[in-house]
């Protein structure tokens, strides 16, 4: 079963003359363990798609199903619970709580879910270690670099062991080097920790880390590219380019 499946997903903002169709009948399937990037020019509806999949917003028509569960059937509270347990969010601006230490930020979704503080804390410690920040657990967000903050955010997204990670321009606020680090980390999320990542980005270099790229234009899916992994491809391609010289 697909982890994410949308059927004729449509979202219209505003009414009457001012109505803007952000998404038009989008059908999308994301299989478990996939790393999918959504690309497209700004205003193409890629963020809207992510919001709808994450249950942050309600579609105008069509439906979103996560693991077969139709989101439109859920109440606000049920959606909140679903977000808490099934989805991890990574935002462009990290969105860490400034007054909480790194470990406390990571523990937040667990605490919200009623996990005992001690267990939440040890879980947070574990994930901070995994993202390579075991020496930064007691730092406040403002004591961390942008890349480090985003890694904390990824640890937070992973802490509640959700199957799906939704990332909205996760490198949008970072320089290219930190951006690469974050993209590599997301790659590990898929390869090592067997999660599914759906990421919105406008950076081709970051999108290239994915297994599949979905191209949106004017609210519809216009194309998709499946990127096969492996070394051979890369070697061949680079050689080709070098010989072109």
């Amino acid at each position: 079963m697909a982890i994410v499946e949308t059927k004729e997903l449509t979202k219209v903002y505003g009414r009457g003359d001012a109505a803007v169709t952000a998404l038009r009948k989008v059908d999308l399937r994301v299989e478990p363990g996939e790393f999918v990037a959504v690309m497209g020019p700004s205003g193409c509806g890629k963020s809207t798609l992510l919001h709808l999949v994450g249950g942050l917003d309600r579609p105008t028509s069509g439906r979103v199903a996560l693991n077969g569960q139709d989101l439109s059937e859920l109440s606000d509270d049920a959606l909140t619970r679903l977000r808490r347990r099934e989805i991890g969010f990574v935002f462009q601006f990290y969105n860490l709580i400034p007054v909480l230490k790194a470990a406390e930020n990571v523990a937040l979704p667990l605490v919200l879910d009623g996990v005992s503080p001690r267990k939440a804390q040890s879980q947070a410690q574990l994930w901070l270690e995994r993202v390579g920040l075991s020496d930064r657990t007691d730092h406040r967000p403002d004591e961390l670099s942008g890349g480090q903050q985003q890694r904390v955010a990824i640890a937070r997204a992973l802490a509640s062991e959700p199957a799906l990670i939704l990332a909205d321009e996760p490198t949008g606020n970072l320089d290219s080097r930190a951006g690469d680090e974050i993209a590599t980390l997301l790659r590990r999320v898929v390869d090592e920790w067997k999660r599914t990542v759906l990421m919105v980005t406008h950076d081709p270099r970051i999108a290239a880390y994915a297994d599949r790229i979905i191209f949106l234009k004017d609210g519809t899916v216009v194309d998709e590219a499946r990127l096969v992994g492996g070394n051979d491809g890369a070697e061949k391609l680079v050689r080709q380019r070098m010989e072109d010289l």
Binding site: R84, P98, L108
Partner: peptide, 16 residues
């Protein structure tokens, strides 16, 4: 605002 939105996104209910 953004902190609160984030809390909501990671699973804090309205009541929380």
């Amino acid at each position: 605002r953004r902190d609160i939105g984030m809390l909501r996104a990671v699973g804090a209910s309205r009541r929380a």
